[in-house]
Design a protein around this nucleic acid. Sequence first.
DNA 1: CTGAAAGCGCTTACAG
DNA 2: CTGAAAGCGCTTACAG
Lengths: 339, 339
Amino acid sequence: MKRPTIADIARRAGVSKGAVSYALNGQPGVSEATRQRIVAIAQEIGFNPNSAARALSGASARAVGLTLCRPARILSIEPFFMGLISGFEQELAARSFALTLQVVATPQNEIDVYRRWWGERRVDGVFVTDLRENDIRIPVLNELQLPAVVIGGPGDTGNLAQLWSDDAGAITEAVRYLMALGHRRIARVGGLPDLLHTQTRTRAFTEVCASLGLSEAVTVPSDYTGEEGGRATRRLLINAERPTAIIYDNDVMAVAGLSVAQEMGLSVPGDLSIVAWDDSPLCSLVHPPLTALSRDIAAYGAHAARQLLAAIAGEPVKDVEEGTAHLTPRGSTAPPRET
Amino acid sequence: MKRPTIADIARRAGVSKGAVSYALNGQPGVSEATRQRIVAIAQEIGFNPNSAARALSGASARAVGLTLCRPARILSIEPFFMGLISGFEQELAARSFALTLQVVATPQNEIDVYRRWWGERRVDGVFVTDLRENDIRIPVLNELQLPAVVIGGPGDTGNLAQLWSDDAGAITEAVRYLMALGHRRIARVGGLPDLLHTQTRTRAFTEVCASLGLSEAVTVPSDYTGEEGGRATRRLLINAERPTAIIYDNDVMAVAGLSVAQEMGLSVPGDLSIVAWDDSPLCSLVHPPLTALSRDIAAYGAHAARQLLAAIAGEPVKDVEEGTAHLTPRGSTAPPRET
DNA sequence: CTGAAAGCGCTTACAG
DNA sequence: CTGAAAGCGCTTACAG
């Protein structure tokens, strides 16, 4: 089956190829009557502009890129990225932008991919996640002048637009809630320590606990996996003065923590309260369902996509702090049992 | 920053653009010495061929597409797709093929996307999942002659290559295992009933149970979500003659089933044994960890990608039955408690 | 072995 | 308002 081109449309409409292009792209240069005739023909023969030809003649590639830097087995059960992708798609699909995905092993590989994408003109811009301190990807993106939106700061990103959520506010709410329930020994199992938003959370957690007089508040660094989250939980719970509540930086570790508590014969929430960061269906799947810090990841992704599309269009893009996650109490939190 | 082109390389090497193209693509037509010189220059200036120009001049787009037809909230915790994507990438990245992703709402939308991708020449081929009976996508793909690999049959796919796993063998193993443990009332919570591989499983489950004399074996249809999986479990467990073992068509429903059992005060595996289809880190995350039918989803995806790349290259591609998932016993299965 | 040229299917100044 | 033409950066017959 041969793909129809603008030449086919031009022939059938009795106009030039240029006129067809103007008509289909809503440019001035054709009369309204002609435009309608051309659009009708395009519709009828099921015309879609060849994306390569379009990209080659200076227009955009109509594609944006996302690199995923996680081992396969973590990616597969980490709900965050799929939620984000769903959000991206809401905006991208509406404007017929494609999303190009690449799984990478290291930030250095990520840079290689950006350079290649840029050289190939494969994408018009990229989403960047997992911002780190002195992130090596940032200067490269700035040098290439590849439009980008950085998710997960805030941090130093040069000219690149940023989107982050109010992590400090969220953790403050969680700690206050646990304290109101009567908890005094609150611990946290953190995400990857070199990510900037993890550092923000750690700092805020330490500060709010100090200001509330919770001197024993401790953060155990972890890596978002169930294995590590479980191990960190075990280490916390074997202490004589074990915490009565633990906040986890993601839902996967929180579920693993719940399992460890059950395995050690501790009841949740009787002996241990659990709060998961980032609500996902996973939190409602287990028993008891997990109290969580909820935010709309898809909306977050959609917002990032709007920013990226604006940056690609050359519009000025402001850094944005998305709203604070709110606490959704479920069965995993309660006043600590008297001992 | 200006992107280097073959013209730049040609100038620096003192040859024609054609020669550069031949050299970089390993075509005959340049001497070995020239080729090496050209390759060195390309390397030095960080040349990547403009993918649009390449695609436009007849070569392939070096991209393949995947549509995901699931609501966002299911996608986010359904480990299967991310596992599959990781597998795709192993093969695609090695040959610098990009993966284009699109989230869609219905099979009809999926068809629209295929038509658009074909018209835009955006992808060279597509992965098709969730094969149904009389699948409306198949005739369209055959009509467009868009190379495709269909995952999740077997079924009638015309000229399109297929890859599936031996679902009948796997469920037979699971049922035999439960029976060996002493179970006689075995139920199954199935996936989306209109998917062909669900039908294969249902048929095989019914047959093997019948042949083993398990007359009460029943499949409750469900939809892969935790909510529905939990509901189906509850319905099974409120029966006087409740099953002593349940097989779930995915890990998410199995975890939900575990929660429901716990919520109803039943012990797992004492009162109820649970087997999850498709092992994922999720199965090891809960307590007790779930006995599962394990298969290497990433390898499955990699295999599909090799098939698709071969189909795109115009090579003959055979339908393939991937190996049988094997049972990984964990804490969620045991002999039924005497009552 | 190498060079000059056509062509892929668009977009976009440039004339009329 | 419309047409003819150049050009994007490659690939690939076609001559030499």
